[in-house]
Amino acid sequence: MSEATAINVAARASLWLKPHRIVLILIALGLALCAIFFMRWDWLPQYWAMGLMGIWRALWILAVTCALGFALAVPLGLAQAGGPIWFSAPAKVFCTIIRGTPLLLQLWLLYYGLGSIFPQYPWIRESWLWPYLRQAWPYGVVALTFSFAGYEGEVMRGAFAGVPRGQLEAARAFGMSRWKIFRRIWLPQAFYRALPTLTGETVLQLKSTPLVATISVIDIFAVSSKVRQDTYLTYEPLLLLALIYMTITGILVFVFSRIEARIPVKIG
């Protein structure tokens, strides 16, 4: 091993193992041990399966709403960036309304508001959609999808507008059709531009998923509420819940940083 790499490794280790940091880590470990030994965790085996189910459901909602929301954000951004006024104006109004009102209110508006309107129409009750409309989760998915689309649509607008004109002009000079320009040039470059914000938006979306528990969808947050009701414990379920969300956030950030690292930095 050469001297330079040895110094490098030592420098990296000393970054983490400064004296004050060792003390802080020990204090944190002590607090964690106190939490493990002095708080009550005997309810854990009983709710273990339910909790895993809740985590799975939260992740599922996160993945579906992010995918659908992004699919909706692309036309929203495109309409605002280069569309004629009768496309861009509705898209702008949609984004403004979604970004200007709380997600909780949108969720309750859909679930309680629309949910109370639907049963009044016989043709809705007879349609094939009715079995879904009677459940809570479709409203949650729609509200979260719209929310993601509203915020990400604004990002995509900037990303589409930020692609250099010359790129599009060159594509046109090559005789590409408009669809092909969009598919091969405009969308990929806009996507690369939007990618760094996508990490943040996905984490924000993860932090929004517990709201669906307020309309009786059983995600991990609802499970922790049930534990609190059943066992009369206040802190333990909430602390574990915070830890679970922090872990998921950490994994998300790590995965996205790996994806970002694969994408060429130099564009345009």
Binding site: T96, R99, G100, T101, P102, L105, Q106, W108, L109, G113
Partner: peptide, 23 residues
Amino acid sequence: AGVTKAYLIFYLAAGVLYLAVTL
């Protein structure tokens, strides 16, 4: 909304209020 059963109207009204604050 719960008392009057006019869910949609009240939630829309609240939405307008929030939007007005934002704008």
